[in-house]
Computed example of a mutant assay.
Amino acid sequence: MTIMQRGANVELTREIPSLAHVVLGIDWNSGGETIIDQNLVFAAILCDDTGRARSGDDFVFFNQLADPNLSVHQLESVMGPDREQIDVDLHAVPDSVSRIVTVLYLNEGTARRRSLGQLRRCVLRVVNGADNVELVRSEDLAGTFNAETAATLGEVYRYRGGWKFKVIGQGHTTGIRGVAAEYGIPL
């Protein structure tokens, strides 16, 4: 297992040429904050070369469990220590998609006056979908958050005919609305 710092990246398909799909898993610990647990949303955004979603269909979350091509979808049954997981079929991702960004955000409503800064642990993992072996994981990102209500955690992206993974760990104080504006997702 390799622990990656924010900004670090790794060439997934150069290391494992036969890699066909990956599972992106998130684990967090909110201490006793059950409202945070109940309102955290793990999502994926399929982006084109400009870094923006092509349409609202490119936002995979609890209300839209897969993209139209079924190349990216949330898993109903989580494997391993993760709270939630998103499966990416690398061969099925449309050519017009150059990156798949993962985000974590607090759903609005009862989670108001809460922030990701209250998390005690937040780790993103990349698992080989074929054998459930962990390839890499992010450093614990919880300590980097303060008043943020959303965060871009990491991304899987095309690179020289293959796929790489990068840890981002960038918080957003404007919640899902700010993330949607940044990536062109209509809400």
Score class of each variant (00 low, 15 high):
80 G>E: 04
53 A>N: 00
90 L>C: 07
69 N>Y: 15
77 S>W: 03
77 S>H: 14
39 N>V: 07
33 E>N: 11
28 W>T: 02
89 D>V: 09
93 V>N: 00
54 R>V: 11
20 A>K: 10
64 Q>V: 05
91 H>F: 05
45 I>A: 03
19 L>R: 07
41 V>I: 14
97 V>A: 09
36 I>R: 01
81 P>M: 04
61 F>V: 04
52 R>I: 02
51 G>Q: 09
78 V>W: 11
82 D>V: 02
69 N>I: 14
49 D>H: 02
74 Q>I: 15
102 T>F: 05
63 N>S: 12
68 P>M: 13
48 D>K: 06
45 I>W: 00
78 V>P: 04
36 I>T: 08
20 A>G: 10
75 L>T: 05
114 R>P: 01
23 V>A: 00
22 V>H: 03
49 D>R: 12
88 V>D: 00
23 V>F: 05
31 G>I: 00
100 I>Q: 01
76 E>H: 05
69 N>F: 15
46 L>Q: 12
24 L>E: 01
75 L>W: 01
34 T>L: 11
60 V>D: 01
106 L>F: 06
22 V>E: 00
110 T>D: 11
101 V>E: 10
68 P>A: 13
116 L>G: 11
48 D>R: 06
81 P>A: 01
58 D>V: 09
21 H>T: 07
73 H>Q: 11
70 L>Y: 15
50 T>E: 09
54 R>G: 06
89 D>E: 06
47 C>L: 13
67 D>T: 10
78 V>T: 12
66 A>P: 02
74 Q>R: 14
59 F>C: 04
18 S>T: 06
77 S>F: 02
39 N>Y: 05
58 D>F: 03
44 A>K: 01
104 L>D: 05
61 F>C: 06
